[in-house]
Computed example of a mutant assay.
Amino acid sequence: MGELFVGGTDTSSSTIQWIMAEIINSPNTLRKLRKEIDSVVGRTRMIQETDLPKLPFLEAVFKEGLRLHGPSPLLIRKFQEGYKIRGGFYIPENTTLVVNAYAIMRDPNFWEDPDEFKPERFMGDLKPEEEARREQALRYIPFGIGRRACTGEKLSGIFVRTVIGVMVQCFDWEIKGDKVNMEEAGGRIFLGMAHPLECTPSPRALNHPLPSHLISSSST
């Protein structure tokens, strides 16, 4: 239970840091995302979970962030019985299989400019049936795939997208220097930032008051 709790909270907070870092490093993405939120949600209230289905670019930003910075870069499975896979290879019972999801989601054979943050790759040019086929082909697997996929996928998607939406809608963000350092931390089960994101928020001019708990801290 401890592993489930720590894993679920740590991966969500880490994902939010990575995605916000990518957004801050990409002013065009920030402007486009903010424009979508303002046009759908307006400037008189804060974004809510019910708004998420009408914000496709926010979902694309979320998916691209997970493609580049999936919280679990390695997926570990154990064969309960012997199995023969494609190509004639036989895997004995009790064999431990480690899938490098990080490498798969950055494979240049599957992704154009794989190391670049391009949320547009998940927009309208990708039809739902093609997206399903891509996941089945093991090209996009931040939550794993099949019966052993992460059961928290839907919940984390709602939570992370809502948090990112609020942070983009309600604040401008300043950092020291021109770019956020995107170096990855080593020696951890979950993929984190070597230098945790440090930035200073300033409230945007909106037509609704920000809750006090959102403006009580000067930095995060």
Score class of each variant (00 low, 15 high):
Gly2Tyr: 13
Glu3Lys: 02
Phe5Ile: 15
Gly7Trp: 02
Gly8Arg: 08
Thr9Met: 12
Ser13Arg: 12
Ser14Glu: 08
Thr15Ser: 15
Trp18Tyr: 04
Met20Asn: 08
Ile24Cys: 07
Ser26His: 15
Ser26Ala: 14
Pro27Ser: 04
Glu36Met: 05
Ser39Leu: 08
Gly42Tyr: 06
Arg45Ser: 08
Met46Cys: 14
Thr50Asp: 13
Pro53Trp: 07
Val61Thr: 10
Phe62His: 09
Phe62Ala: 01
Lys63Arg: 15
Glu64Lys: 04
Glu64Tyr: 04
Gly65Arg: 03
Gly70Gln: 13
Pro71Gln: 04
Pro71Val: 01
Ser72Glu: 10
Pro73Val: 05
Pro73Phe: 06
Leu75Ile: 08
Leu75Val: 01
Ile76Cys: 05
Phe79Arg: 04
Ile85Arg: 00
Ile85Tyr: 00
Phe89Met: 15
Tyr90Gln: 11
Ile91Trp: 01
Pro92His: 10
Asn94Glu: 03
Thr95His: 04
Thr95Asn: 06
Thr96Glu: 02
Thr96Pro: 00
Tyr102Pro: 02
Tyr102Val: 00
Tyr102Cys: 03
Tyr102Glu: 01
Ala103His: 06
Ile104Gly: 02
Arg106Leu: 00
Phe110Gly: 02
Phe110Asp: 06
Trp111Ala: 09
Trp111Val: 08
Glu112Gln: 14
Glu112His: 10
Asp113Ala: 09
Pro114His: 06
Asp115Pro: 01
Gly124Glu: 15
Lys127Asp: 04
Pro128Asn: 07
Glu129Lys: 11
Ala132Glu: 15
Ala132Gln: 14
Ala132Trp: 09
Arg133Phe: 03
Arg133Met: 03
Ala137Trp: 05
Leu138Arg: 09
Tyr140Ser: 03
Gly144Arg: 03
Ile145Asp: 06
Arg147Cys: 13
Arg147Leu: 12
Ala149Leu: 09
Thr151Met: 14
Gly152Phe: 02
Glu153Ala: 14
Leu155Met: 12
Leu155Phe: 15
Val160His: 08
Arg161Ser: 13
Thr162Glu: 08
Thr162Arg: 09
Gln169Arg: 12
Gln169Asp: 07
Cys170His: 05
Phe171Leu: 15
Trp173Asp: 08
Glu174Ile: 08
Ile175Arg: 04
Lys176Ser: 13
Met182Pro: 03
Glu183Val: 10
Ala185Ile: 03
Gly187Phe: 09
Gly187Tyr: 07
Gly187Met: 07
Arg188Leu: 13
Ile189Ala: 10
Leu191Tyr: 06
Leu191Ser: 13
Ala194Cys: 11
Ala194His: 12
His195Met: 12
Leu197Asp: 07
Thr200His: 14
Pro201Thr: 01
Ser202Glu: 07
Pro203Tyr: 06
Leu206Thr: 03
Leu206Pro: 01
Ser212Asn: 10
Ser212Tyr: 06
Ser212Thr: 09
Ile215Cys: 14
Ile215Glu: 07
Ser216Leu: 11
Ser218Arg: 11
Ser219Pro: 07
